[in-house]
Every structure is written in structure tokens, then in C-alpha cells.
Measured scan of single mutants.
Amino acid sequence: KFNKELSVAGREIVTLPNLNDPQKKAFIFSLWDDPSQSANLLAEAKKLNDAQAPK
């Protein structure tokens, strides 16, 4: 279960257009550290992506 959630969340995070590479890497490392938090980490990444969207 975690492997699928981890890969789905990881793929989504790397495609978020408004995150820079260090931010993406930080989220990916957090996913590896605790795969059970993949849904929460993906939600946080999406929030940050939205907040950094060009206005």
C-alpha cells in the first residue's frame, strides 16, 4: 500500500510547476522518511504550489 501511495505522491510532487527543485527534493525526502504521511505531504506540497503560483 505505501509503495503505491509513495510513487503516486512522488510523481505528483515532481510535476508541481510552482515548486523549485529544493522544495520538491525536501518533500520527496520526507516521503521516503515516512511513507505513511504521503497523503498529508502531497496536500502540503499542493498548498505550497498554489501559494507560489504567479499572480
Rank of each mutant, 00 (worst) to 15 (best):
S30E: 06
L19N: 00
F29S: 07
S7R: 10
S38C: 14
L41T: 06
N20W: 06
R11P: 02
S30K: 14
F27M: 03
E44H: 05
N49P: 00
K1P: 12
F27V: 00
I28D: 01
D34Q: 07
A39H: 09
A51E: 10
Q37N: 12
L42W: 04
P22W: 15
L48R: 04
N18D: 01
T15V: 08
P17E: 06
E5H: 09
N18I: 01
E5G: 09
E44M: 12
G10M: 15
A26C: 14
P17I: 06
P54L: 10
L6V: 11
K25T: 10
W32G: 04
K4I: 11
A26E: 07
E12W: 13
P22A: 15
N40Y: 13
P35Q: 03
N49L: 01
P54Y: 08
P17W: 03
L31N: 00
F27S: 00
L16T: 01
D33F: 13
A53C: 06
D34W: 02
N20V: 04
N3E: 13
I28M: 07
F2Q: 09
N3Q: 11
N49A: 02
P22S: 15
D21K: 09
A53N: 06
R11C: 15
G10H: 15
T15G: 13
D50N: 07
K4C: 15
K25R: 12
D33G: 09
I13M: 03
K55N: 11
E12H: 08
L41K: 03
V14Q: 12
L48V: 06
L48W: 04
L42P: 00
Q23A: 01
K55R: 11
E12D: 06
F27Y: 07
F2H: 09
Q23T: 04
D33N: 13
K1F: 13
A9C: 08
A51H: 07
S7Y: 14
A39T: 07
V14C: 15
Q37Y: 03
L41G: 02
I28T: 02
W32Y: 12
K25F: 14
L16E: 01
E44P: 00
K46Y: 09
S7H: 12
D21P: 11
T15S: 13
I13T: 01
A39G: 07
A9R: 05
G10K: 10
A26S: 08
E5T: 10
N3A: 12
L31V: 03
K47T: 07
D21M: 11
A26D: 05
A45V: 00
K55C: 13
N3M: 12
K55V: 13
A45Y: 03
A53E: 08
A51Q: 11
L31W: 02
I13Q: 00
E12T: 09
E44A: 12
K4H: 12
F27T: 00
S36K: 09
P35C: 04
K1R: 13
L6H: 05
F27L: 05
I13P: 01
S7W: 15
D33R: 12
